[in-house]
Amino acid sequence: MKHMDPNFRKDTKTEFPQREELKPRKVTTPDGQVIDIEPLQDYFCQEPPKVHQKSYFKIVEDFYNWCRAESLWILAFGTGCGAIEMRPLMTPRFDAYRYGIQWRATPRQANLLMISGYLSVKTLKRAIRTYEQMQGPKYVVGLGSCTINGGMYWDSYNTIKKLEEYLPVDLYIAGCMPRPEALLAGFMELKKKIKAGNAEGANKYAEKFDWYKANQKAVIKDWDMPDYNW
């Protein structure tokens, strides 16, 4: 392994300029009206996420949690290598459907975000957006070395190292890539956690929202979305 250049300093001064089309501007409509357009705010929500209370009755919450655990809808977003082991998971050999695990194509309906391996900065932005679009309670599972401590791309300029700095992670599964069996074992663990009422990632995200945002913005220079952006 080559040695690190001790004199190298990352450029911390240059700011990434905001895209032209995202800047607020005035537009004249065909009927002559002049309107203000703020692209960043027009399509998105500005309100930060809220901490949601559990049900008042414990028995109800327990029942809900049981249902949540037994109905895990995974978002079909393969962020990295790990996506390749998702397909065996949902097909005849491993058939995760029988454990109540299903695919969803849209983040709105999914409640489990699998970060399947390394996250490049570009994907991290999409993953954050996707996570924020999901509805709570929602869970994040990090797959493989890359999400734990950078994995094999520990020295890459374009991948993150610690996933929990950016998203509230409920469970990590070791492997490179974790096999489908390991994933299933992980899901069983996640189910246990949900049933016990410990999978409160969405609330954690809301509570430490500022911390998460600061971390996210520290690596994503081109932050072309509002802070909260479902």
Binding site: G150, D155, K161, A218
Partner: peptide
């Protein structure tokens, strides 16, 4: 790249 990475993403 290693220096950049360490200055951007801290090690565990």
């Amino acid at each position: 790249t290693l220096a950049y990475s360490q200055q951007t993403h801290a090690d565990r």
